[in-house]
Design a protein around this nucleic acid. Structure first.
Length: 575
RNA sequence: GGGCCCGUAGCCUAGCCUGGAUAAGGCGUCAGGCUUCUAACCUGAAGAUCCGGGGUUCGAAUCCCCGCGGGCCCGCCA
């Protein structure tokens, strides 16, 4: 795309040229950093002159005033810059948004995003449930984050491999399996009609209950695990079926949420594999043997606590497996980046893992990232599945859909059942995912079940409603927006919308590069507020400027839909 | 004992990375708006010791230090 048509590029170019004419030496990158959004009413972009003060040795206010004349002269080369005004220590730039609308948005019928990724491959590991029980609320936050970050990265040109690490081999899996063997009576999810992961989870809960009266069951479960490790065909066969149910159940939930994985790594296939790597590292002197024969990665030089990477009985630890898996993934995928979406309680673990991989000499270890997110808390503290203090993921999803259905029945009781359900699903899940994404990922959040998740205010349905209203107006016009030929220019409010549509571009880039969908979530609310205000105060169908306005809201609706998709939300034509 | 994260109106949050022009939204409260493109909406009002104290700076919600409060973690759990 022609760079002179991109507002930020034009402003930057103009500043550079002006400064060059004055022999002021400042790096291009520095200018880009300094450039900010001007406050309401003062312009569009603002360039603060404080930094220049130390170079030119004048007061910032005077510099701004000084540069104003010159910059106005040079402006002609950048026709999308309408005006420049010096105010206080700022140079405020006014953009011709009408021109941006015509020459950029109108061509694409959407917001053009830059191809920053250039097809580079990024693995995003997320969700990663345990196969002994259904997912809970924490997984829903994880799923939403992982999927949204994946979509954001794709939107700016990266190739994303959505990766799930299934823990299908921990002791708890065998505890559930043991309960099934003892009390299952050959039932299956099909015979009981349960969702398969819930069927599995029920036996895990049953095990925990029985264990209280029969502590010897724990030893039984360990024996079962041992038999599995020794490839006992009977156990293996049963286990495969059992874990398959769990996975099948997860897949149903993923489908409901609109997510799918490109790659699944199974712990059962790798849990034992890291030992050779550890042994070689000991030979090279990277790792050391401890007093009991355990292997330690010395990390104190890197300001981290040392980490045991192999037990004294030579069995693997979680970190052993993670070291192996990272290397395996790199060898297979040659990824540019690997992003682990894992809760903040594992911050230290990942710091240690990344440092260890660095010590092992893998240059790509520097491009490993941990998207650490805060815990989902319930009143009274952390969720603990062992204590039954969890909110089941499928329950929440269903609850959201039911709430949406109730609203639909209030508003549109005449709709067919199928249509109602379809809308309820989109709205319920949209509300849920938006809620999970709108907070800074780092922050813990307290979930209050009795308050539920709202459909009003800063919510997913608010965005969906805005979209539906726009689509409804377009539908009622009977005009195909693609056939409209624009004449006349946009008004002030309309230019403001174009401006904010355009600013979404940088927001999406920031969200993607910072692994933080909440940035986009907030900006999208702001945009929807402007749009709602616009169609409330401005008649469209009854206006002489109908066609121009239709075109604007058509493009706005496309951009809204695109952005909502990045937040794992679907759109509705009617609400 | 040590490390990491968080602390902004009654409540939930944005802004902090990269210091700069009146601290921005939502919920709730109060006052308005459906014979006019869908009221899951819109307009207006009230509501803030930016946890406390120092420091750096022309300038601090933002950077640094010391406290206080909350969460998470710390060599053979995952």
């Amino acid at each position: 795309m022609d760079k002179s048509l991109i507002p930020e590029e034009a402003v930057k170019g103009l500043i550079i040229e002006t400064l060059k004419a004055r022999n002021i030496d400042i790096e291009d990158l520095e200018i880009e950093k300094l450039l900010t959004i001007a406050p309401e009413g003062k312009g569009d972009y603002a360039f603060p002159c404080f930094k220049l003060a130390s170079i030119v040795k004048k007061k910032p206010v005077d510099i701004a005033k000084d540069l104003e004349k010159e910059i106005l002269e040079l402006r002609k080369k950048w026709p999308i810059i309408r005006n420049i005004k010096a105010e206080n220590a700022y140079l405020n730039f006014f953009i011709d948004w009408d021109k941006v609308f015509r020459s950029v948005l109108l061509k694409e019928k959407n917001l053009p995003l830059p191809n920053l990724g250039d097809g580079k491959k990024i693995l995003v590991e997320y969700s990663s449930p345990n196969a002994n029980k259904p997912m809970h609320l924490g997984h829903l936050r994880n799923n939403a984050l992982g999927e949204s970050v994946s979509r954001l990265l794709e939107s700016i040109g990266y190739k994303v491999v959505r990766t799930n690490l299934l823990n299908d081999r921990g002791l708890s899996v065998f505890q559930a399996l043991l309960a099934y063997m003892l009390y299952g009576n050959d039932t299956t999810p099909e015979t009981t009609g349960e969702k398969p992961d819930h069927f599995v989870g029920r036996f895990y809960v049953l095990y925990k209950e029985k264990e209280k009266e029969q502590p010897e069951l724990e030893e039984e479960a360990r024996k079962l695990l041992k038999r599995w490790e020794n490839n006992d065909p009977q156990v293996r066969k049963l286990w495969e079926r059992f874990v398959g149910w769990a996975l099948q159940g997860f897949m149903e939930t993923y489908e409901e949420l609109g997510i799918r994985f490109d790659r699944i790594d199974y712990e059962s296939q790798i849990y034992d594999k890291g030992k050779e790597i550890v042994r070689r590292a000991v030979e090279k002197g990277i790792f050391q043997k401890g007093e009991e024969g355990e292997i330690i990665a010395p990390l104190e030089k890197h300001a981290l606590p040392n980490k045991v990477v192999l037990r004294s009985d030579e069995t693997s630890l979680y970190i052993t497996q993670d070291i192996y898996l990272a290397i395996k993934r790199y060898n297979e995928e040659k990824f540019y980046k690997l992003i682990y979406v894992v809760a903040s309680e594992q911050d230290l673990h990942f710091k240690q893992l990344f440092t260890i991989l660095n010590l092992l000499g893998h240059e790509w270890a520097q491009r490993l990232e941990h998207l650490s997110y805060g815990l989902v808390l319930l009143e009274g503290g952390k969720m603990k599945s062992r204590e039954g203090r969890v909110v089941d993921a499928d329950d929440i999803i269903q609850e959201m859909i039911d709430l949406a259905l109730r609203e639909i029945n209030k508003r549109n009781p005449e709709l067919g059942e199928k249509e109602k359900l379809e809308r309820a699903r989109k709205i319920g899940i949209g509300a849920l995912n938006f809620y999970l994404l709108k907070f800074d990922p780092r922050k813990d959040f307290l979930y209050k079940p009795e308050e539920g998740i709202s459909f009003e205010g800063e919510t997913g349905p608010y965005l969906q409603y805005t979209y539906a209203r726009l689509r409804s107006i377009i539908r009622k016009s009977g005009i195909d927006p693609l056939r409209i030929k624009i004449n006349g220019s946009l008004g002030g409010e309309e230019e403001k919308i174009v401006k904010n549509l355009w600013l979404l571009r940088k927001t999406i880039i920031d969200s993607a590069l910072r692994n933080d969908p909440s940035i986009l979530a907030h900006e999208l609310i702001h945009l929807a507020q402007l749009i709602n205000n616009y169609y409330h105060s401005t008649p469209i169908l009854k206006s002489r400027e109908k066609e121009k306005r239709l075109l604007l809201i058509y493009i706005a609706s496309n951009i809204l839909a695109m952005a909502m998709k990045l937040l794992v939300m679907e759109t509705l034509e009617e609400m």
